[in-house]
Every structure is written in C-alpha cells, then in structure tokens.
Design a protein around this nucleic acid. Structure first.
Length: 273
DNA sequence: ACTGGCTCCTGAGGGC
DNA sequence: TGCCCTCAGGAGCCAG
C-alpha cells in the first residue's frame, strides 16, 4: 500500500523524467478505477507541458497550463517509467506518452486508485478542498492537533487517519507514530494533553521523514525499472503482532479498531495522558 | 457535528 | 499440488 512516504519518493523519482516534459498522447487502457478515468483528459492533456508535480497528502498533482491531473495510488497503484512502449500487462490502466517517447504508466490491481482532472485550482476540487494540512508542512503543529481534538471521543488512531484532520496518514504510519509517541491507539483524541499532541505531531513528522529518506536512498527510479518499494523494513509495531517490542521486549498486540488493525506495545504505549 | 459501518477489488496466505 | 475461504486496506460516502 503506497503510504505518504512512498508517494513522495515516487514524486521525487519521476520528477526529473516527467516535469517539464510535454505530453504527446494519453492512452486509457482500463478506465475502471474507484471512479472511471475521465475521457476528457485525453484532449485536455494533449500537447500540455507538465509544469510542476506536487504532493498533497497521498495525492499527486500534475500541473499544466490547461489544468491539473489529480492522482491517488489507492492500495496497490504504482507508476512506472518506461523508455519506450513496453507490452502491457494485466492491470496496466493508463499511459502518459511524452514527446520524447518515454512513458509514465499507471498500474493498479485492486483499482482503489483515482485519476481525475480539473480545469481550475485543484485545491478547490471537491476531493481536496476539505482535506487537512499535509503532515510535513508547518501548518501541522501540536497546537493545531490539540485544537482539532478537543471534545473528540474518537480513538486517536482513526482520528489521525482522518484526512480532514491531517492528510495522508495511513494505517502503517499511524501505528508507527503512536508507538514513537508512546500513546495507546485507543486513547480518546480529546483526552490528549497539549504536550502529548505536540509529541505526536513530532513523531508523525519523524517517522514519515525517516521513511522518505530510507526510500529515497534505496530506490533508484529510472526508466524501465518499476517502482514497487514499500518501506516496511524498520517498522517497530506494524504487522509485528506476537513479536517482542524492540524497546521493552513485551509482545506486540494487535486489535481491531473499526475496519483496521492496530498494532501496539501495551507497556510502551499508555492511555494515561 | 460526530461516529461507525459499508463499499469498491484482487492477490496472498492458510487450511485441508 | 490445488482448491477454497478469508482477509487486508484508502477513503469517500451515508445513515443514525
């Protein structure tokens, strides 16, 4: 599952190969995603230059003079750079063919991804307008999180996974950040002190930055090499149920919260806030 | 205003 | 070896 760090490493990887290039052709192979890929992008993107590629949460925005292509990789989506037309495989949905014949290809087996187009400001697009700040920006502070969490009874884990609060924190990094901050995932969000909120925000930024650094160092994104890296190598709790906590040795627990699994150390992560 | 549950989809993995 | 069942999960949407 591409989480925010994977999306950011994808952005950095494709940047030198896609930004500044002009789209010669758009090919929609399988339009069916979470929403169908709109046909209008074929004409809208043709002959447009990709001026900037920006990330907001887990969304990637490809800006052109005519409008913006909005990408979300969903659960299983990834982008590949191909030096020339390579034979298509199952679940290849979409190609951006640049004037120099390089191809940016979108692959997504579970079809949870999303490709949208907007002629106007993408931040006013209905998918993005209600979204909270990106966690790596200066708008995401302890004070902000403290203010948003007042009177909220929801558990802190689903709270920080709510895109309206903060954009793009998925299950893996929610678990990892809560471990790093020493907060039990079931703690009601409204019970967190201002200090705990500050610590949680710092933990979120830290685990995300570390994953981005690791991924950037590990992944060499170049034509004909497919992007497929998920940075699970240094996880402290995620999918480690039954294994000893790296901090205290107590066995990591797994509980079901809503529709998601939460992993945590019952000794290092407390509800006394 | 909040909260929890449903839904889309397919590959992986476990059990037998 | 192979079949079948269950599960995982981002996030928008909807009902209570």
């Amino acid at each position: 599952m591409p989480e925010l760090p994977e999306v950011e490493v994808t952005r950095r990887g494709i940047l030198p190969h896609a930004q500044g290039k002009t789209v010669a052709k758009v090919k929609i192979h399988h339009p069916k995603l979470r929403l169908p890929i709109p046909n209008k992008i074929i004409t809208r993107l043709q002959n447009q230059k990709i001026s900037r590629i920006v990330r907001v949460g887990k969304y990637l925005l490809f800006h052109t003079a005519a409008g913006t292509l909005i990408f979300h990789l969903g659960m299983t989506g990834y982008l590949s750079l191909l030096s020339k037309t390579k034979s298509r495989e199952k679940h290849d949905h979409f190609d951006l063919v640049f004037q120099d014949n390089t191809v940016l290809r979108y692959h997504d087996s579970r079809k949870f991804g999303l490709i949208r187009w907007t002629d106007t400001d993408p931040l006013r697009h209905h998918l993005l307008k209600a979204i909270g700040p990106d966690p790596l920006t200066n708008q995401f502070t302890g004070k902000y999180l403290y203010g948003k969490s007042r009177n909220r009874k929801i558990a802190v884990k689903p709270f920080i996974m709510d895109a309206k609060i903060v954009a793009g924190i998925g299950n893996i990094y929610a678990c990892e950040a809560l471990f790093a901050a020493g907060i039990h995932p079931a703690t009601p969000a409204g019970k967190l002190s201002e200090k705990k909120c500050a610590g949680l925000v710092q933990a979120i930024k830290k685990v995300l930055r570390k994953a981005i650094e690791t991924g950037t160092a590990v992944m060499v994104f170049q034509p004909d090499r497919e992007w497929s890296g998920y940075f699970l190598q240094n996880r402290a709790v995620y999918q480690r149920a039954g294994a000893p906590c790296k901090n205290c040795g107590v066995l990591i627990e797994k509980i079901r919260m809503g529709q998601r699994s939460a992993f945590f150390c019952g000794k290092c992560q407390r509800q006394n806030v």
